[in-house]
């Protein structure tokens, strides 16, 4: 059953990504060149709606949060390395399969590369775990916890800030 939900959720997400054209190389690189903000609009809309919805569910006891730990060594370095690869590939792990689905066969080379990257990481893992992945380990911490605030004030700031940013992008015609 859980597997079926995974497949159905994926199909729904794939349709939305494809119809909004956010999986295209030209749009992803366009965002990184600050010339086409379509994926930023899509992501920010998802984040703002998800933020309110997930915290509502959590407050009502209907869902559990699943927070990944902040380990500065891993999160910062890994994030930057991902960004470099992303700029070359123009797809990300979630969207590469979708790009292939709409006929962009270059995504297949990217997916093969991602398998290699995962394999190399698995080889390096013991060394990384004893090194980089011990630098600046803050555990599973959220922004409200770091700030000593409740989550709703922080969410309110994000919603207002996000809407203002989107309005700015529209005015700039991006």
């Amino acid at each position: 059953m859980e597997l079926m939900f995974g497949l159905l959720t994926g199909i729904g997400f794939g349709v939305l990504l494809q119809r909004a054209e956010v999986i295209r190389f030209d749009r992803q690189i366009g965002a990184l060149l600050l010339k086409d903000m379509t994926i930023v609009k899509f992501m920010l809309s998802t984040i703002l709606v998800g933020m309110v919805g997930v915290y509502l569910l959590a407050d009502l006891g209907l869902a559990k949060l699943s927070i990944k730990p902040l380990i500065l060594g891993g999160t910062v370095l890994g994030g930057l390395i991902f960004g470099l690869g992303w700029a070359l590939l123009g797809y990300c792990p979630g969207t590469a399969g979708a790009a292939l689905g709409e006929g962009r066969v270059d995504a297949l080379a990217g997916m093969a590369g991602m398998l290699l990257g995962a394999a190399v990481y698995a080889e390096a893992y013991p060394a990384l775990k004893a090194g980089v992945l011990t630098w600046g380990d803050y555990g599973k911490v959220t922004l409200p916890e770091l700030l000593g605030l409740g989550h709703w004030p922080v969410i309110a700031v994000f919603v207002v800030g996000g809407v203002l940013l989107l309005r700015f992008l529209e005015r700039k015609g991006l």
């Binding site: 590939l89 123009g90 792990p93 990217g110 590369g113 991602m114 290699l116 990257g117 990481y121």
Partner: peptide, 10 residues
């Protein structure tokens, strides 16, 4: 794309 994919996944 292959190189980018490998770097991105790592």
């Amino acid at each position: 794309a292959f190189v980018g994919g490998a770097v991105a996944m790592f």
